[in-house]
């Protein structure tokens, strides 16, 4: 008979026996050894009917098809740009995937993107040897202008974005900044005032730290509103001084 040993929604460690018996099926982050299903990655356990899987709680980004990421141009070749994806593998952005403009052969590619530029791009394909191709030809993909780049833990990205982007749009509205979150854990923040950007970073860091504690949305909005109030009182004081 199948018997579950570990509890659902708890952390499992590599080598830990999750379930005994052939009824259960191993999925992501688990493997079968004889009768047992064993974790092979540090993660949180989820059980969907008979299928057992774990969701990672640590680790670097691993490139996947259709992910939108923020990448940095690190090299320029004859037919495109090589970009760093914040993972073990760099990606290739070829000229035909970069722009609809006609680029003549032998033209200076730095006119479009130079080394050190950050781009939001989408992964078109990943081969078995982890050769990664990216494109800029999809809505919303572009070169990123002035702003700040911060790095967050990859497995926290869904929490920073929130359900249908609710969390990130709240931060955007409250701090009046533009934010782009890449699946690879790179986040671009740009605002007209440096303190707005700093507040947005503070909020993102708070999400990263406390995403597993319930009531996260309330705490974030509290943080953002408190700071907005401070600003208001400050400006009030200033106007009084003038009087």
């Amino acid at each position: 008979m199948g018997e579950l040993i570990a509890k659902e929604k708890e952390v499992v460690v590599p080598g830990e026996v999750i379930a005994k018996g052939m009824e259960y099926l191993p999925s992501h982050g688990t493997y079968r050894k004889d009768e047992n299903i064993i974790a092979n990655r540090l993660g949180i356990l989820f059980i969907d009917g008979k299928v057992i899987k774990t969701i990672p709680v640590s680790g670097r980004y691993h490139p996947r098809r259709k992910d939108t990421i923020i990448a940095k141009v690190i090299d320029i070749s004859m037919n495109g740009w090589r970009v760093d994806t914040n993972s073990a593998y760099s990606a290739m952005l070829s000229v035909k995937d970069a722009t609809n403009e006609f680029i003549r052969k032998g033209e200076d590619l730095t006119r479009y993107f130079d080394i050190g530029d950050y781009l939001t791009c989408q992964i078109i394909q990943v081969t078995s040897q982890k050769l990664v191709d990216v494109t800029l030809k999809a809505p919303g993909l572009r070169k990123l202008g002035k702003g700040r780049i911060i790095e967050v833990k990859t497995h926290k990205v869904p929490r920073i974005i929130g359900k249908q982007g609710s969390m990130v749009s709240m931060i955007k509205n409250e701090t009046k900044t533009q934010i782009v979150v890449g699946q690879n854990g790179m986040v671009w923040i740009s605002g007209s005032q440096p303190q707005d950007e700093i507040l947005a970073i503070k909020a993102i860091r708070l999400i990263e730290e406390q995403s597993h504690i319930s009531g996260l949305t309330d705490r974030i909005s509290e943080l953002l509103k408190k700071d907005n109030k401070k600003k208001e009182t400050k400006t009030e004081v200033k106007t009084e001084d003038k009087k």
Partner: peptide
């Protein structure tokens, strides 16, 4: 290695 999220069969 486990903390780094590397897939491994056991400690």
């Amino acid at each position: 290695l486990a903390d780094a999220g590397i897939t491994m069969k056991d400690l």
